[in-house]
């Protein structure tokens, strides 16, 4: 499970893509057309990108993503069949 702190981004501004064994998470903030005067800026929405390698035992088709309250959660279920204990006969 991956957890990202993306406070301030809207779900529409986040893109998740898988390619081979890599999962790419990127943010694309919409243009801020607010004509507001900035007094203090400690966090800014930016174009960001991050790659994470998908472990071999993950079922790629079942990868899910949830975004709530600024936290993006990516759940990568493992293939149970790959982790078996083998009995010695």
């Amino acid at each position: 499970m991956l957890r990202f702190n993306l406070a301030g981004y809207d779900k529409s501004e986040i893109k998740i893509k898988t390619e081979d064994n890599l999962i790419t998470i990127s943010t694309h903030p919409a243009e801020n057309t607010n004509a507001e005067k900035i007094r203090l800026s400690e966090f800014r929405k930016m174009e960001m990108k991050r790659n994470v390698r998908i472990p071999v035992d993950v079922v790629k088709e079942s990868i899910q993503a949830k975004y709530e309250n600024g936290i993006l959660e990516i759940i990568m279920p493992k293939d149970e069949n790959l982790n078996k204990s083998i009995n010695i006969e």
Partner: peptide
């Protein structure tokens, strides 16, 4: 936490980055 403060003609806007809360 990180905070942004901006203002327009009518008000000040304070934004606090605090994910995962209610």
């Amino acid at each position: 936490p990180a905070v942004n403060v901006s203002e327009n003609d009518n008000a000040f806007i304070v934004e606090v980055a605090a994910p995962g809360l209610k």
